[in-house]
Amino acid sequence: MIRWHQQALATGCLLNLMLAGGCVTSTVQQVRESATGMNETESVVVLSRKTRPSQEETEADFVNCISKSMRGGKQRVNVVGEQAFRDALFPWFEPRTAPVNASDLPELISQPELAERLASLGLRYLIWIEGDTDRTDSSGSLTCSVTATGAGCFGFLTWEMDSGYEAQVWDVRSGNLAGRVSSEAVGTSYMPAVVVPLPFIAPVRSSACSSLAQQLKSFVLNEG
């Protein structure tokens, strides 16, 4: 009876962990500076800041995730790939030369070659992404051994991830800042291990990506 009770308790704890492990809390905020909207022939590009002193670049797969998410869904947005854009506009969007503020755009676009290339891409909005996902807390311990007869792990780990991203939307046509959209997400992951580790990962970064991409899409299409 006691043994059954212990097994039930252990199973209950595991279920709780599995349920709680997937939880992510995310919030999205938007500040609009000017009216937006785009037609079917226009496109956007999503770029990450790669300025030298910063050691906290936005992850490449996050930028790809935003681009991919904006391309998909009900109302699709034409998104130019980041590398294709940087190559097409080389050298004006390299870390050393990229404009820092939206107010730098008019001077840049006044170069006929650039204006012509941007027009051929149909580019309407430049979206600069800054921020990253960090581990903010962790505890527990886990030990793994590999021997000639087999391998196994024992222990328990838990860690919290925190995503913070901000997107600045620049209107290429007017050379103004159209607005800002930010996304915050927090989630806790667990990994108990009795011989085999069982990771219950909170999808913090992907939650931040989907919520930010959805809001950006809505923002540039002027849906709210």
């Binding site: 581990r135 030990t143 051994s145 590999v146 792990c153």
Partner: peptide, 27 residues
């Protein structure tokens, strides 16, 4: 025998599947 231990400093490799964890530790 290869033995590895992790504490609070969990690396990003923990995002991998459980089945690849042992391989990760060996690597």
């Amino acid at each position: 025998m290869v033995k590895a231990s992790m504490s609070g400093a969990v690396s990003s490799m923990l995002n991998c599947r459980a089945s690849s964890l042992v391989l990760v530790l060996v690597l």
